[in-house]
Design a protein around this nucleic acid. Structure first.
Lengths: 200, 200, 200, 200
DNA sequence: AATGAATGAGGCTTCATTCAT
DNA sequence: TATGAATGAAGCCTCATTCAT
């Protein structure tokens, strides 16, 4: 609420991110978090309602940062094809550069699940999906993309992205996964774009 | 000891490997292991002396499989240069193909430590180092390699290998790490081999 | 049953005595006993029906040795007064010389309880009480002792003995307890004996 | 820290002392302690860090009481010879009057060990040794004692005291041990004091 | 007579969570 | 806002005991 509380709250999430990334959910204790912040365990409950809540808020925050970075990069371009391509590249780039978020993802890949029945991070994934939807809608309006059904297509692309992440970081097929991603991206752009090919 | 106990013991380790790989050390409970095997927690203590022991025996077993695979592949070649190159390639290949061992490594990279003060997996790493030593010694005898000081060189190569694994799977620099590894391998072989270059 | 089994059985009790004396009942595990004997835990159950049983049989054996020693010493004398006096002295003497039995007693003084409702060692204490009874009966027959009611008197004397042991070893009033015992003995002999005083 | 916590803490130690003295370390469960105090097992961990810690804190407290009593008695006298003699007498006296501390000692005589490698109760024994040192130093300054080397002499006397306790309560040589102690004390005072003999 | 394998009860310990202040 | 004190669930581990062989 207040500014002070808000600042403290963000401080807590940042600290929690470090610890969850380093030690994992189970091994990170509330005492660890509290100690590193110089406060007491009990006091944490003033800001979050339980450990799981702390974890989800922490991860949400980290994801929002990732989404913002991608959105910002995407806004630089005008052409929907370019936007799409930038989005695909930046999403990966960001994860490569942010060890903590990547570590969280490796430990807990279930975080990405576009299925609302697993409510856990549905809302956050929704943000990512919506960005895809926006680009698709724009591309169609611009006449750059074929007239695909936006919603399911956005979900498909998101799933492909998640599948790639899992292959790369969890199933660890490293190089081949990246090549697959690059190849797939080409195909998708080719299949998505009308007339003149979208550059890449 | 007996055949039956031995079979059960291996069954336990195999099951434990799955669980440790999937859930990590802390989150895997002995009840998980026991339940999946259809036995009681207490009975596990007939086969291992505690949870840590179960973990170490499990990891040891998995590592032995990896070492055996590499050794077998290495034996196919006669030339020390080829052996070295195969060893380097197979070590990575095996880890890429075995999700569980890789998952263990990602969660607990400290496993690889050639320092005897951390007694944990010293013996196992020693097995890997010895293979390198053998290849180096052979190469020198064959006149293929320069006369390097075998022991420290073997340790150096092992460290490089570990560093690469960490970059690839823990620090997750994926592609670039693999390229670095390939480049490094070329340089090493060039610097190691005498006269005619070792093929790669 | 068989001679071999009997020998083994005594060996077990002797070993158990050492361990129970040294570590106490709770801290002594059946594995301790089995290991020291070079047999398995399970096999112990062929000789005793459970840990408590082993303990009680062990203590019984030790007590029987103590009773035998006292009986043997008592038999040397003919005069009932002398017998009584020797019994009193020897009982203490023996405990002083046998560390293990004494250690058992110190840890578990409840062992001595002449109350049949606590069935634990009733039978064994009974042996001691009977010796007193015999001496009393003899003394009366010899005309040396007043005609006391044998049974309750024997129990009284036994209780006094136990009280003394507790004061000495458990409540640890050492010296004063011994003086009390000596004084008490004099009084008792004086009160017990007719005509000419019983020597001491 | 706070007054309330401090009171509770002492209450815990007092209760634990009763139980440890009565049942011994192993047989005393934290549930026993907690139940007797009307609190939960877990809550005990707010005051001590584990069972061993509870035991050591409990014993420490009991020992401090014993040391204080001896110190107080010693302070009544001015003459170093008298102080020494009082210390020797009071140390025994106190243990005789305090069943619980004595019981603890009988069960766990290793508590008294002036060797710092066994860190367990080193500090506490140190307190006792220091009192001896102080008396020796004073006696030398007063010209009452010969100029002995204070530190090793204090340790020697402490060792003699412990040896006596073990003979009396553990090896249970009761009377003879006390006589030995009294004789030894006379000799020591004679050997320690200059000129006129220290009274006893 | 003896053993290997298995079990359940119970002990120690950690930790998320709550409540009064 | 913040804390100290308290709790219960769940985890690891030991050990007496049993059963089939």
């Amino acid at each position: 609420m207040t500014k002070a509380k808000d600042r403290k709250f963000n401080e807590i999430l940042a600290t929690a991110l470090e610890l969850f990334a380093h030690y994992g959910y189970k091994k990170t204790t509330l005492k660890d978090v509290a100690d590193k912040l110089g406060m007491t365990k009990s006091n944490l409950y003033f800001y979050v309602s339980n450990k799981r809540d702390l974890y989800e808020k922490t991860v949400s925050m980290a994801f929002k940062g990732w989404q913002k970075a991608v959105r910002d990069a995407v806004e630089q371009a005008q052409d929907a094809g370019d936007k799409f391509s930038i989005m695909a590249t930046q999403s990966i780039q960001y994860l490569m550069e942010h060890d903590e978020l990547r570590s969280i993802f490796i430990r807990d890949p279930g975080i990405f699940t576009p299925f609302p029945n697993e409510d856990r991070f549905y809302k956050i994934n929704l943000g990512a999906i919506r960005l895809i939807e926006e680009i698709l809608t724009l591309g169609i309006k611009q006449g750059r993309f074929h007239e695909v059904d936006v919603k399911p297509t956005a979900e498909l692309f998101f799933s492909i992205y998640v599948m790639f992440l899992i292959k790369t970081y969890v199933k660890s097929e490293g190089v081949s996964a990246i090549r697959m991603y690059e190849e797939g991206l080409k195909i998708i752009l080719r299949g998505l774009c009308k007339d003149k090919p979208c550059k890449r």
